[in-house]
Structures are given as structure tokens and as C-alpha cells.
Simulated assay, not measured.
Amino acid sequence: MNQFDQNNVSKHLEHVRIVMVNTTLPANIGSALRAMKTMGLSKLVLVAPKTYPHPDIDALAAGAQDLIEKIEIVETLEQAIQDCHIVFGTSARSRTIPWPLLDVRPAATEALQAASKDQNIAIVFGREDRGLTNEELALANYHLTIPVNPEYGVLNVAQAIQVVCYELRMAALEQNHSNTEIPNDHMQLKQQQSMEWDEPLVTQQQMEEFYPHLEKMLTDIEFLDPNNPRLLPLRLRRLFGRIQLDRMEYHLLRGIFSRAQALANGSWKKTNKEDHSHD
């Protein structure tokens, strides 16, 4: 691979971050950094690690000292992914509501297609003993799984990170080799086609403002019972998580929510301009 190709691969991988939630063993953090470094990833975000810093991190990182210096520590998963456009939550278990589920290889391809359009990607790994909670998995657009041997599907978190980082690198190399990058002003459609797109996509932080507004509107119009929401909020997250809203669509929908709320509580009045808007 020439230097230009290498720089191209590195540029795309820079948009991918590994997120580790409530990690207990410092050695797993060090091993994760080593796995990342060997595959060309450099951004690790730790969500409320149990023990940090620790000598085991330096010992297991083995030459990835520069990545240790770049580690970001946050208190919540929402903070870790707030500026991301696509989030993959790793899971080996079935859930109450089936989420869009991708094996690691197609997930890596999806991630690198988005990274080539300068979108920020997060791959989220859970606790050593119990992974991610249902609430944390609900923050993801996709669930990612590694197709392990069903008779012995045991991977520790650092091993899982190594597998995912390898697939991300292979996807970046394949994308660079085939020269199939989609321009920044295009959006990938589910039918594997692309079209010109005129607005930037919203981030996870913006969507975390969107969902409470949606639920409050549904409560105001008496569609959602806040005392017995059942699975409706989760299903709505799954619905909007499957699609990527752009900025215009986001503001349009929030405007509709606000109008519905105003109509429900009787505070909305037409202006003269609105009276003639359909003439």
C-alpha cells in the first residue's frame, strides 16, 4: 500500500471511536488499546471505568502509549456518543425488541461507508460480566454481533474489540481498493443506492433531545400514557434509529410536535400569514 492509500485508510478510521462502558479490569483497557493500535484506530472513550489510571493499562498497552494519552473519560454513555451520527451497540444476547442486528463484517462496511462521508461512528462495548443494558443498547442505531461458535461463544471484551477493529481495518482497505467511496454530499440508501443530499445529518446528542420531545407530545395528545408507556418509547427509538434524520427533517418534525402540543392545550392561534398560506 502506498502512502496515499495508507493516509486514506487512516483518515477514515479516525472517524471511528471505541467506547468501553464501566470496565472493571484495567488490563482489558490496555489490551483494547493494543488491539486498536495494531489496526490503525486511535480514539478510545471510557465511560465511568471502575479503576483508572492503573499500571496494568500501561503494561498491557505495550507500545500504545500515545493512545493512552488520547483516552477520553466521561461519566455517561450519552456523553460518549453525543457527537456521533451512527452508533453500534455490541450484544450477544437476544432482546425484548429485536433491534437492527448486523454481524461484525457488514457492520464494519456500514461504519466505513459513513466514515468516508466524515460521519462520526461509535462502537460500544459493555461490562465484562453482563455487557450493555437494554437502556444502553436502545441508544444504538444498530446492534453488532460476532458470529462465534454457538457451542463456546466466549470472548472477553478485549478480544471482541480486536475482532471488531480487524474488520474495520479490512473494510477500510477494501473500500480504498475498490474506490467506491460516496461523496460527502451523498447519502447511502437502504437499497445500496446514493443520491445528492443537501443537509447535514443530526448527531446522537440532537436525537437525545428529539426523543423526550416526541414522548412529551404523545403524552400531551393522550396517545402515550406516561404511567404505562409499555414498549412504545423503545419502538419509536428503534424506528428513528433505523433512519438518519437530516437537519431540516429534524426541525420539521420538532415543529410538528410543538404544533400538536399547542393544539392539544389550546394555546395555538393562527396568524394572518398562516390563514392565507394555502390560498
Rank of each mutant, 00 (worst) to 15 (best):
M1L: 01
F4E: 14
F4Q: 15
N7K: 13
N8T: 11
V9S: 03
E14M: 03
V16P: 04
R17N: 09
M20G: 05
M20F: 04
V21F: 08
T24H: 11
P26Q: 11
I29E: 09
S31A: 14
R34I: 05
A35Q: 02
A35R: 04
A35V: 02
G40R: 08
L41Y: 13
S42D: 10
V45Q: 04
L46H: 03
P49R: 15
T51L: 09
Y52H: 15
P53Y: 06
H54E: 05
D56I: 11
A61D: 06
G63P: 02
G63F: 01
G63A: 05
A64C: 00
L67F: 08
I68W: 11
K70E: 15
I71M: 09
I73D: 09
I73T: 09
Q79H: 14
A80I: 03
A80Q: 05
D83T: 10
C84Q: 08
C84P: 03
I86P: 01
V87D: 09
F88M: 13
T90H: 01
T90D: 01
R95Y: 05
R95N: 08
R95F: 03
I97R: 06
P100K: 12
L101T: 14
D103C: 07
R105N: 14
P106E: 10
A108S: 14
A108E: 13
T109M: 11
A111R: 12
Q113I: 11
Q113S: 12
Q113Y: 12
A115S: 00
S116A: 15
A122F: 08
A122Q: 10
F125R: 02
E128V: 03
D129P: 07
D129I: 12
G131F: 11
T133C: 02
E135G: 07
A138S: 08
L139K: 13
A140L: 00
A140I: 00
N141M: 06
H143S: 12
H143D: 04
T145C: 11
N149H: 14
G153A: 15
V154A: 13
V154W: 10
N156G: 07
V157F: 05
Q159W: 01
Q162D: 02
Q162R: 05
C165K: 05
E167S: 01
L168H: 04
M170P: 01
A171K: 02
A171C: 00
A172I: 00
L173F: 09
N179D: 03
E181P: 02
I182Y: 12
D185R: 02
H186A: 10
H186Y: 15
Q191H: 10
Q192H: 12
S194F: 06
M195K: 15
L201N: 04
T203K: 00
Q205C: 06
Q205G: 15
Q206L: 12
Q206A: 12
M207D: 02
E208T: 09
E208Q: 15
L214D: 03
E215F: 14
E215G: 01
M217K: 13
D220P: 05
E222Q: 14
D225L: 03
N227A: 12
N227K: 10
L232N: 07
R237W: 01
R238N: 02
L239G: 08
L239D: 10
L239P: 08
R242I: 09
E249F: 09
H251A: 14
L253Y: 06
I256W: 14
R259I: 12
K273D: 00
E274A: 05
H276P: 00
H276A: 00
S277G: 03
S277T: 01
